[in-house]
């Protein structure tokens, strides 16, 4: 009698870490207190990774979406929409479970021991809808409709809510602001095809600007000064951090607009959670293991599933598995089939 081949999801934490490191590998940004603005920024990170992180090499798709929706020139970002459809239809919320740095950070926080860890509570189901409201209002509607006299809208989700942006962008930039680009240099112009070789009125090779900021008499200030908006964003970040210790991935559950988008594509995504009914013994271990409070035995590809694989690892018979496409139907074998599993189509 053949035993069911049980899948074990291993190395997810390592994949998260490596992908976060890879996509935030611009170390010069940390050393110099600046942001990478080269050509790779034309590409989007699949997860929520702030453009303004000093190490970030890719753009945030939600930031890019707001920027284009709010711009005077364009409103519909075909490129970002295409990218989100591509990633969502292929991977769904696999991105959340394996590729999103902010999801990884919340998981690390959840590991911190705390006496009041709760994932199931009243109102949890209703709160899950808040992220859709944030997507519609702060990511799409307000940048499009609340415009200044020039017709430009603000990236309201980034500006007022996103704790990933605060943690990955604002905090490092403020901390590194002593190294920031506030001091002009009299180095020569960087070479490159777009630079003019000589400037009008200046002998070739002459520095563009002479001078220095190190003059006495001007009160020293940090480069990035912070005010009320920064304080508000830090409050939001602090709340998300505290909640992440008490409950699993609160931002992903309740606030993430990107999770909302990928979640909507989860039911049809190529990467899916599969259930082999004939192997299920209805032990309920998958339900207990699921920190997103789902029931993998009965529904496998809901919007809320972040593909962490805990249910797959918890399943004693290998009924649950994750992968691309639908698994080949496993032949029923004596001794492993459940009493109710015989003959189900």
């Amino acid at each position: 009698m053949a035993k069911a081949a049980k899948q074990r999801i291993r190395g997810r934490g390592l994949i998260q870490l490596l992908f976060a490191a890879l996509t935030n590998s611009f170390v010069t940004g940390f050393a110099a207190g600046k942001i990478y603005q080269g050509n790779l920024k034309h590409l989007c990170h699949p997860g929520l990774n702030c453009y303004s992180c000093p190490g970030a090499v890719l753009s945030c798709p939600i930031g890019a979406l707001q920027a284009v929706i709010g711009s005077r020139a364009f409103h519909l970002s075909l490129y970002v929409m295409g990218f989100l459809l591509l990633v969502g239809a292929t991977l769904g919320r696999f991105v959340c479970g394996f590729l999103c740095p902010f999801g990884m950070i919340q998981e690390w926080l959840y590991k911190i021991p705390f006496p009041w860890k709760r994932n199931r509570f009243r109102g949890d189901a209703a709160l899950r809808y808040v992220k859709y409201a944030l997507l519609v209002v702060l990511v799409i509607a307000l940048p499009m409709l609340l415009v200044n006299d020039a017709g430009a809208g603000s990236p309201t989700f980034c500006k007022y809510v996103c704790p990933a942006g605060t943690l990955e962008g604002a905090v490092p930039l403020v901390l590194l602001s002593g190294k920031g680009p506030q001091t002009p240099t009299d180095a020569a112009l960087p070479a490159g095809p777009l630079q003019p070789q000589a400037l009008p009125g200046l002998p070739a090779g002459q520095p563009i600007l002479q001078g220095t900021t190190a003059l006495p008499g001007i009160a020293a200030e940090p480069v990035y000064r912070t005010g009320a908006l920064f304080n508000w964003k830090m409050t939001v970040l602090a709340l998300v951090i505290l909640l992440s210790v008490a409950t699993y991935r609160p931002f992903c559950k309740y606030l993430c607009p990107l999770g909302a988008i990928y979640g909507m594509l989860n039911p049809v995504a190529l990467y899916r959670l599969r259930m082999e009914d004939s192997l299920c013994i209805h032990c309920g271990r998958c339900r207990k293991a699921c920190l997103m409070c789902l029931d993998p035995e009965h529904r496998q590809n809901q919007a809320e599933c972040v593909r962490c694989g805990d249910c797959v690892n918890a399943c004693p018979t290998g009924a649950l598995s994750m992968g691309f496409g639908e698994k080949k139907r496993f032949g029923e074998t004596a001794g492993t089939a459940s009493p109710a599993g015989q003959g189900r189509g």
Partner: peptide, 21 residues
Amino acid sequence: MLTQAFPALTLAEATQAPAAT
């Protein structure tokens, strides 16, 4: 859904619509 992504991507490239920031 996947196949809709590619026309959108290539259309965006053809019309040279960079994301403003």
